[in-house]
Every structure is written in C-alpha cells, then in structure tokens.
C-alpha cells in the first residue's frame, strides 16, 4: 500500500503479462506431462521440444470465425468469457511474492506484491466466486441445453465445495491470526502450516481441485454427458478465454495453497518470487498428475464427497485448531 498509483499500475501490467506467459507455458507442460504419463511424446513438432505449441494454438484460435449461436442472448453471450477471465486474473493480483525489493542503480524500493490488505483472503474468495458467474451466464446465454446444464453443474459444484474450502482455510486463519497474505506467510517462519494443519490441507486441496473444475472433478465439462458444458457453444478466442480462466484459476488456487500451507514466498537462499514459482509449480504438477491418473467421479459421488466427507472433516479440523490455539 506504500507504492504510488503509477508503480501499482506498472506492477499490475508486469504481473498480468507474466501470468499469461506462465499460463501459456503451463499448457505446454500439461500436455507434455500427460503425454509422458500415457507413454506418448506430447506436442513435439512446433519449435524446439514443441515449445511454440501454445503460440501456434493462439494463432489458430485468433483465426476462427466469430460465431454466435441462434437463440443466444448476444450481449450476455459476449460478456461471459470476459467476466470469467477478469475475475481469474484479478484474484491472482493479491498474491504476495516477497517483501521489499530494490532496483539497483536507481535505489528505488518497492513491494513484491500489488496490495496487502487486512482482508486479502476474503477479497480473493470474493473475486473467485464472482468468476463463476462467467460460467453460469455463458451457459445460460448460449441458448443450448447442454451449455445450461454445464453452467448449472458448475454452480452446484461451487456451492458444495465452497463451504468445505472456506472451513479448511479458517483453520489457517485462526492459527495465523490474520487474513493478510503477508502476515500469514510470515506466521509460518519456523514451521509451514501444512504440518499442524495437515487435515485442513487435505480438505483444501480436494476442494481446490473441485473449485478449479479440474479432473477428476470436471463434471462441468464431462464430454459424455453435457458435450463441453458451459462452453459448448463457444469457439475461437472466447473459448480460449474460458479455458485460460479455468487454468489461471488453477494457478491462483495453487498460489493460495502455497501461501496458506507452504510458507508463501519465504524460503532459504532463493528470492521470494522464485520460491513462489517453485511452490506453485509443485501444486500444478500434482494437479496434472491427478488429471493423468484418476477417472472422473460421478455427480452423486461428487456431492457425497463434498457434503459427507469434506465438510465434517473440515469442521473437525476447525474445532481442533480452535481448541489447540486457545489451550496450547
């Protein structure tokens, strides 16, 4: 909050571009890794090791015809991917990447985060839940039953897992005594919260996979049941925006996991941003690993896991944490 408006704008610009580049790179990593898990090569034709594949995909998406399906509500149909994308990027903006950095020669000091408010965690949760409106509006405005079903599945899934997710995170909040990301990272200086909050971490992780609509919880776009879910009727760049929003949500949730349970940007020897990158990368690797190995759950199983397993476990964790914090 110390930095001026101009510095904040520059930092936001840099962060958004780094995030988009990281997202493009991660799509390549994901395809490559899944290829390896399935004893294939993955993309290897465009550029060295297939590294230019994301750029080729982007070129392809940009050339697609701009289609609007019959029976769609045009304005809402157009704006839905924008909502999803804006919220995905916005939620990432509050992640901390370290303390104070200095630019050499100019002797200019700035913070390695865009903003640190007393309610950062709540703001991320708020923006993240607004992002789901993009899915719901997109599904509804497409004027297609499969898209509508996909959008409604997204909402049902969000509502079910948001509860367990929040309860799991409250354990961390109680232990750190703050909602600010910087304070939470600093509270884990000797010991990462993944050790005392292991139960909470498990709930957080499963709920995070479900909230980012990734396999095995990608019921929202289960191709055998609802074609492609909420983005059935979308093509070209608008589809790409939905896909990007989904993956950036996964990156944001990984960053959230890194901050809440793995000590955030704090770590020995390496600078803060690098530590964050390593921790986010570790989370994303596990997400891709899970995608390559686990089959998709059924919808009733999804609901059962959310309400009958995660919610009681998260509540138990919350009670234990509260007792431990008060009496130990």
């Amino acid at each position: 909050m110390v930095d001026g408006v101009l510095a904040t704008i520059i930092k936001s610009f840099v962060l958004v571009n780094v995030l988009m580049a990281f997202f493009a790179f991660m799509t390549w990593v994901e395809r490559k890794l899944i290829g390896r898990f399935q004893v294939r090569y993955g993309p290897n034709r465009v550029g060295p090791f297939g590294l230019l594949q994301p750029i080729a995909d982007l070129g392809k998406m940009l050339q697609k015809e701009n289609m609007v399906p019959e029976g769609a509500r045009v304005k809402l149909y157009m704006v839905a991917p924008l909502i999803a994308m804006t919220c995905a990027i916005g939620a990432f903006g509050l992640m901390p990447f370290g303390g104070v950095a200095t630019i050499p020669y100019f002797d200019y000091q700035f913070h390695l985060y865009i903003a640190d408010t007393s309610v950062s965690l709540l703001v991320v949760a708020a923006i993240g839940s607004l992002g789901f409106y993009g899915l719901m509006i997109g599904g509804w405005a497409s004027g297609s039953k499969y898209a509508l079903l996909g959008g409604m599945r997204a909402i049902a899934q969000l509502v079910s897992y948001e509860v367990a997710f929040t309860l799991a995170v409250i354990g961390v909040i109680i232990q750190a005594g703050s909602l600010s990301f910087v304070a939470i990272s600093d509270a884990q200086m000797p010991l990462w919260f993944i050790v005392p909050q292991f139960l909470g971490f498990l709930v957080f992780f499963v709920a995070a996979v479900a909230e980012s609509n990734r396999p095995p919880f990608d019921l929202v776009e289960a191709d055998g049941e609802v074609v492609a879910g909420y983005h059935t009727e979308y093509g070209g760049m608008r589809y790409a925006m939905f896909a990007a929003a989904e993956f950036i949500n996964a990156i944001t949730l990984s960053a959230l996991g890194a901050v809440l349970f793995l000590g955030g940007p704090n770590g020995p020897f390496l600078p803060g941003p690098l530590w964050m990158l390593i921790k986010i990368g570790a989370f994303l690797f596990v997400l891709i690993w899970i995608r390559a190995t686990l089959p998709r759950v059924r919808f009733d199983q999804l609901m059962k896991i959310g309400w009958k397993v995660l919610l009681p476990v998260a509540t138990l964790n919350l009670l234990l944490t509260a007792v431990a914090v008060v009496y130990l």
Partner: peptide, 24 residues
C-alpha cells in the same frame, strides 16, 4: 473493508448464485 468483502462473498457469491440456479 470487511463488510465489503463479506457482502460480495455472502450475497454476490452465495445467495445470488442460488437465485440464478433456481431461475435457470
């Protein structure tokens, strides 16, 4: 700040989502 964040999470994030769900 807290009321603002709570308003978005509770009303916009949870209640309105259920409204839209029922309407759809």
């Amino acid at each position: 700040q807290f009321v603002a964040a709570a308003q978005v999470i509770v009303y916009a994030g949870a209640i309105m989502v259920m409204f839209l769900f029922v309407i759809a």
